[in-house]
């Protein structure tokens, strides 16, 4: 039984694309056949994060409009043969997508893969609506700050009312992925804590990804962090999240406050002149 999962957030820049790539890679590493679909037509990024930007010939818009066959547009990852990418078009905009066309593509992908991951564009307009429209479940990516949380809340409301599943009266499964979490700043009260976010959004927590240079490095190198540096806390957070999506019970550990080293404590702050 294949699953269509939308990765969404409302707000931009919170880590949707990184999460799509990392969860996709982690699920593929767990032996599932996975396709990640970039719905951010006009601002495509997923190909870069997956290091496939030089191999894109046909894209989602070509397939939706019938100019290319799905098989021509799917790009297989060179490191993981169970992971594929369906890129977005950079030269078109979101109006190039139609609901019928998207539905047909999603149905076709559903037959080929175990997991279809739709990387939603930011916002609540057509692109985001089409990305979530045919999904079975959602991963809501949120940063621990009030604006991100409020936008996520808005998106959760839309998932509960605008998806095909919700319109049929079925319950729509939603998971929270808390990214860019900085335990030190949360402890100082400069960021919302995990409990605050969970209390406001009231959906189950899928994982907590700490703010980490590993994530940025991996993105810049075009390699998901779960492949690039599997031992890092961020990679482990994504790998654990993938296992939870597959139905395993894995305890969630909040990133702990790291104790600064002796030198860190001695020379942690530079005097202000």
């Amino acid at each position: 039984m294949s699953k269509v999962m939308v990765v969404t957030s409302g707000k931009g820049g919170v880590g949707k694309t990184t999460t799509s790539a990392s969860l996709g890679a982690a699920l593929a590493q767990a032996g599932k056949s996975v396709v990640v679909v970039d719905f951010d037509v006009g601002l495509r990024n997923l190909d870069l994060v997956l290091g496939a930007e030089r191999r894109v010939v046909f894209d989602l818009v070509n397939v939706v409009q019938g100019d290319a066959k799905l098989a021509q547009a799917l790009i297989k990852d060179k490191r993981l043969d169970t992971l594929s990418l369906l890129a977005a078009s950079q030269t078109r905009d979101k109006d190039a997508l139609t609901e019928e066309g998207v539905k047909t593509v999603i149905e076709e992908l559903r037959e080929k893969f175990d997991w279809v991951i739709c990387d939603s564009p930011a916002g609540i307009e057509k692109g985001a609506m089409l990305a979530m429209r045919h999904a079975d479940l959602a991963v809501v990516v949120t940063n621990p700050e009030v604006s991100s949380v409020r936008d996520s809340d808005r998106i959760i409301g839309m998932l509960d009312s605008k998806t095909v599943r919700a319109e049929k009266g079925e319950t729509f499964e939603k998971h929270l992925m808390l990214t860019r979490f900085n335990p030190a700043r949360a402890a100082k009260g400069e960021m919302l804590g995990v409990d605050d976010v969970l209390e406001i959004l009231a959906i189950p927590l899928l994982g907590i990804v700490p703010e980490s240079p590993d994530v940025l490095n991996a993105s810049n190198l075009g390699c998901p962090v779960t492949l690039h540096n599997p031992a890092s806390t961020a990679a482990r957070a994504y790998a654990d999240a993938a296992r939870r999506l597959l139905g395993e019970t894995v305890e969630i550990t909040a990133p702990a406050l790291e104790k600064p080293s002796l030198f860190g404590r001695l020379f942690g702050r530079k005097a202000v002149a």
Partner: peptide, 20 residues
């Protein structure tokens, strides 16, 4: 829950909400 951006309008009487 009544989520951000949602609007519950009921002119006929009381509204009870179980959730935030």
């Amino acid at each position: 829950p009544v989520r951000s951006g949602q609007s519950i309008i009921f002119e006929e009487g009381d509204v009870t909400i179980i959730g935030p």
